[in-house]
């Protein structure tokens, strides 16, 4: 079973996404801010991270940079999941090191295929 880490501060969106992924037979762990996301990624070594960008304590851009600069975590694929919908936001996310980007409201099937594509590599 593949392990997915969701880093998301909004409670409803966190619960919704984790429930939907669990029903698709993923193992799901959750963090509520960027720092917790980094700590949990190091501890649990997930197969993929779904990263919100506007996060308290440490934002998603910063957390992604740190994860991608750490030899222990740099190979974990990260998909940015964000309500920032401008092209410049997407560019900023990819520059921070995210492997892909999905805008909220998310298209679940599209997200699943992006996740599968990244986890196959």
């Amino acid at each position: 079973m593949e392990k997915i880490l969701i880093v998301e501060d909004n409670e409803f969106n966190r619960i919704m996404l984790s429930r939907r992924l669990e029903l698709k037979k993923y193992e799901v762990i959750c963090a509520v801010d960027g720092q917790e996301g980094i700590d949990l990624a190091k501890l649990e070594n997930p197969d993929l991270i779904l990263m919100d960008l506007s996060l308290p304590v440490k934002d998603g851009w910063e957390a992604t940079k740190e994860l991608k600069n750490d030899s222990k975590t740099k190979n974990i694929p990260i998909i940015a999941l964000t309500a920032h919908a401008l092209d410049s936001d997407k560019k900023q996310a990819l520059e921070a090191g995210c492997d892909d980007y999905e805008t909220k409201p998310i298209k679940f099937q599209q997200l699943l295929s992006k996740m599968n594509a990244l986890m196959k590599n």
Partner: peptide, 17 residues
């Protein structure tokens, strides 16, 4: 746009669920 998308994400997500 960011603010509106956040609750919308929950609405669409939970109803699809």
């Amino acid at each position: 746009s960011h603010e509106l998308r956040t609750p919308l994400n929950a609405i669409i997500g939970f109803s699809e669920l």
